[in-house]
């Protein structure tokens, strides 16, 4: 089990030219991810979801200050352990397509990822991972700049899955994809979870997250408000505990498409 326990995060920023101050970005983040589930984290952009992913994997920028605790299978997940597990048992599917090396063909990048993860036959593992995301033949041999946005996302997904990681953190894996590719990526995350992996799906797109997720954690202004089973999001959202989660659900275009009353989404005091 991957546990995040009252995580808080400040950034040191310059105020004026010389003075640095700490700007809180995550205030109170708690959730737990178990094997075999797709756990969606939904919330507005800028709420700090990506920072949480970077904190789990241990890739925060140098001016970040972290508090709270991370645990993996009961033991603290500290910086040395993150470095040891990153790319092996813990894999991140980054949001930015710039994460691909522009000078290396995609299938080689996937092979390298498998190699770093310590797979015994990296080439075969890469081949299998690429086939799983539907990148076969010529398209797998292209350079990143020859790939469409959807293909690049699938290469990133293949890199994360080639190493047989137990824990996958997918940061906005479907952004910029057209419906067919988006469903393909989400379906594959579901299959990975069904195969016994724990998948954390970070997204702003509540509706499509619901189609694959078991549980949903609602994130607002650097705070996790509640974790609800996916089937709590139905009807008028009565089963949801927080006003923000209800408003988020009701604001979907196929529900009320409603602008929520201001007090429900006001920043937390």
């Amino acid at each position: 089990m991957l546990e995040i326990d009252h995580l808080a995060l400040d950034f040191l920023r310059y105020r004026g030219l010389w003075q640095r101050e700490a700007v809180p970005c995550l205030r109170d983040v708690s959730l737990s991810l178990v094997r075999g589930e797709v756990h969606a984290v939904v919330g507005a952009s800028g709420a700090g979801k990506s920072l949480m992913a970077q904190a789990i994997i241990g890739l925060l920028p140098g001016n970040a200050r972290l508090r709270g605790e991370l645990r993996l299978d009961g033991a603290p997940l500290d910086a040395p352990r993150q470095a040891a597990l990153r790319g092996k048992r813990l894999a991140l599917i980054p949001q930015s397509l710039a994460a691909l090396d522009p000078l290396v063909r995609s299938h080689r990048q996937v092979t390298w990822a498998a190699q770093r993860a310590g797979v015994s036959a990296p080439r075969a593992a890469a081949e299998r991972a690429l086939t799983e995301v539907g990148m076969v033949g010529d398209s797998a041999r292209r350079y990143p700049h020859q790939l469409s946005g959807g293909m690049a996302r699938r290469v990133l997904l293949a890199m994360a899955t080639a190493g047989e990681a137990d824990w996958l953190i997918a940061d906005e894996p479907s952004v910029g994809l057209d419906p067919a590719h988006r469903d393909g990526v989400l379906d594959q995350l579901r299959r990975l979870a069904d195969a016994g992996k724990g998948v954390l799906l970070i997204t702003h797109d509540l509706r499509h997250a619901l189609s694959v997720a078991d549980r949903v954690t609602v994130f607002h202004a650097g705070t996790t408000l509640e974790t609800a089973p996916a089937d709590a999001f139905q009807g008028r959202g009565k089963a949801l505990a927080s006003g923000y989660a209800r408003a988020l659900w009701r604001a979907l275009p196929d529900n009320d498409f409603a602008r929520p009353p201001v007090h429900e989404v006001a920043p937390l005091a």
Binding site: D10, F11, L12, R13, Y14, R15, L17, W18, Q19, R20, E21, A22, V23, P24, C25, G46, G48, A221, G222, P267
Partner: peptide
Amino acid sequence: MSATPSPRLALRGNPRLGLAL
């Protein structure tokens, strides 16, 4: 990521100050 007021930090370990000096 709202910038609420928070305690100012000392200038120690400030890379920008190093550059200026």
